[in-house]
Simulated scan of single mutants.
Amino acid sequence: MTRISGEGELVRIFLGEGDRYHGKPLYEAIVLLAREMGLAGATVLRGVEGFGADSVVHTARILRLSEDLPMVIEVVEMPERIEPFVARVEAMLDEVNCGGLITLERARIIRYQPEKR
């Protein structure tokens, strides 16, 4: 992998921890897709509380512990590489008939370089 910098895009995919894709967590399937497509990287963040289009609050508070916490997957990459990835993710979301939100914004990449080994 080479160093990249300049104008990129940040895609964020919001979904639930309980969403599944072919028997595995959907967030895991999306990260594997990003890797398969040779993207620079992907990060999954677990939210402690949130709600989506259904207005149901999911929380990690002990008295109302949810098994479907909010999950956010972030990917920063060059625009020409993000577009086909987003199309594949949308197809995955449609296939499993789950909700979700995908956002896209410009990102100025200051540094992306693998570790020196």
Rank of each mutant, 00 (worst) to 15 (best):
R108C: 05
H58M: 03
G16H: 06
R81N: 02
E17A: 02
R20A: 09
E90Y: 14
G6D: 09
V11G: 01
R12S: 06
K116L: 13
H22P: 00
L33D: 02
S66Y: 07
G18C: 12
E115S: 13
G23H: 08
I73V: 10
L104T: 08
P84M: 10
R88N: 02
D94W: 01
E80I: 06
F14I: 12
A87E: 14
E74S: 14
E36G: 02
L33S: 11
S55G: 03
I102S: 15
V75W: 00
R111I: 15
A40W: 02
V31W: 00
M78S: 01
I82Q: 05
E17D: 11
E95I: 01
G18T: 09
L15G: 04
E28C: 07
P114C: 15
F14W: 03
R46Q: 14
I73S: 02
D54T: 09
S55F: 09
A87R: 15
R64Y: 03
R108T: 09
Y112Q: 15
V76C: 11
K24G: 02
V56D: 00
G23T: 08
L69G: 02
E17M: 10
R81Q: 07
R35C: 08
L65T: 10
V57Y: 00
G100C: 06
G50L: 05
V31L: 04
C98V: 15
G52H: 03
P70T: 11
V31F: 00
G50Q: 09
E28Y: 04
E115L: 15
E36C: 02
E115W: 07
V44P: 01
T2V: 08
I30K: 06
M92Y: 07
G8S: 06
S55Y: 07
R64M: 08
P70A: 15
Y112C: 12
E36W: 00
G18L: 06
T103R: 15
A40T: 07
I13N: 04
V72N: 05
P25Y: 06
L63C: 05
Y21F: 11
V89A: 09
E95F: 03
L45R: 10
E49N: 12
E67T: 14
L69A: 03
I4K: 15
I110E: 07
P84G: 13
A87C: 09
E36I: 01
F85E: 00
T43D: 04
V76D: 03
A60S: 12
L63S: 12
Y21W: 04
T103Y: 02
H22M: 08
V57P: 00
E95N: 09
E77V: 08
V31N: 00
V76A: 13
E74A: 15
V57L: 11
G47R: 01
V75S: 04
G23R: 04
I109F: 03
A42C: 08
K24W: 01
K116W: 01
I30N: 09
E36Y: 00
A87T: 10
G100K: 12
V48H: 05
G99V: 05
L69Q: 13
A91Q: 14
L93K: 13
H22E: 14
I110W: 08
V48M: 11
A60C: 07
L26N: 02
R12D: 10
Y27F: 11
R35G: 04
T43L: 05
E90R: 15
R61G: 01
M1Y: 10
G100H: 08
A107C: 12
A91D: 08
A53S: 14
G16N: 11
